[in-house]
């Protein structure tokens, strides 16, 4: 077994990287894969909170890198899913506590034992981002259908291409049908037209996400949730299955055009 290392990043903060990481990891583990997610947001950790594992942390990523514990000791097993592990970030240090090489080493050590290693990148384009991207085989960009988030996503895609980690895949998060209908929000096609990358998920805006992250229970594990389904679909697409996109006003009717854009995308 050799894991695929997937880094989830966005440039802009607050678009849903951590939520996406938690839900994708949970959905993949729910499909039966062995998954470890790594919080690379050192100093501002919250993947543990979103997964509801905060009170189980003993050692963290920086402890591993600095040799204070074995890798296994820093891996926290999820309370719901047997095959899901978390390596938390340190809260009392900063991004300079680890280097891109450290991340590569940690991932190389994990690779033989897992199917997926999902890395939650911090916002920004500095050291933390470089750490998160260094070991990646694939990169998923999370963006919201708003101009500033798309602009930052574009910048990040350029940086990912420069690191030769591309082609990046895109999750459009927090799509609001009503706003699109009123012409007040970018539609998925508008986002793809600019970014010219492959789409891998469309996640609707949903207040239940807020509730689930506060509770530390990923929404991807709630069978009835439409948003949970959207995350499960992304997980299936990642595992190679073809899953059609749910009809929403943000996408409906545009798909002929959309698939054309996807095909001609990239550079």
């Amino acid at each position: 077994m050799s894991a695929r290392v997937i880094t989830i990043t966005s440039g802009k903060g607050g678009v849903g990287k951590t939520t996406a990481t938690a839900n994708l990891s949970a959905a993949l583990a729910d499909l039966g894969y062995k998954v470890v997610c790594i919080d690379a947001d050192i100093g501002l950790r919250n993947l543990d909170v979103v997964l509801g594992l905060e009170n189980r942390i003993v050692y963290d990523l920086v402890d591993v890198v600095e040799g204070r514990c074995k890798l296994r000791q820093a891996m926290i097993r999820d309370k719901r899913l047997e095959e899901l592990y978390l390596i938390p970030a340190a809260q009392t240090r900063d991004k300079n506590a680890i280097s891109p090489k450290d991340m590569q080493r940690v991932c190389d050590e994990l690779r033989p034992d897992f199917d997926f290693i999902i890395i939650d990148s911090p916002a920004g384009i500095e050291r933390g981002f470089k750490n998160a991207i260094a070991p990646a085989d694939e990169v998923i960009i999370v963006t919201n259908p708003e101009v500033s988030a798309v602009r930052d996503a574009d910048r990040i895609i350029g940086l990912v291409e420069a690191e030769q980690k591309g082609p990046a895949k895109l999750i459009v998060n927090r799509l609001n049908d009503e706003l699109i209908e009123r012409g007040d929000m970018l539609a998925v096609a508008d986002v793809l037209e600019l970014l010219a990358v492959d789409l891998i998920g469309i996640i609707p805006e949903d207040q239940a996400v807020l509730v689930s992250t506060n509770r530390g229970a990923p929404i991807a594990l709630e069978p009835k949730s439409r948003t949970g389904q959207a995350f499960r679909d992304v997980a299936k697409r990642l595992s190679g299955q073809e899953v059609a996109y749910a009809e929403t006003n943000g996408t409906g009717g545009l798909f002929g055009r959309l698939s054309k854009l996807i095909r001609t995308g990239g550079s």
Binding site: D154, R155, L159
Partner: peptide, 21 residues
């Protein structure tokens, strides 16, 4: 893409898009 910059003393031809930023 956003953040990219071409600075050149002569003419510049770009085959591709010049994105905002």
């Amino acid at each position: 893409r956003s953040g990219a910059s071409i600075v050149h003393a002569g003419h510049v031809t770009l085959i591709g898009d010049l994105n905002p930023g």
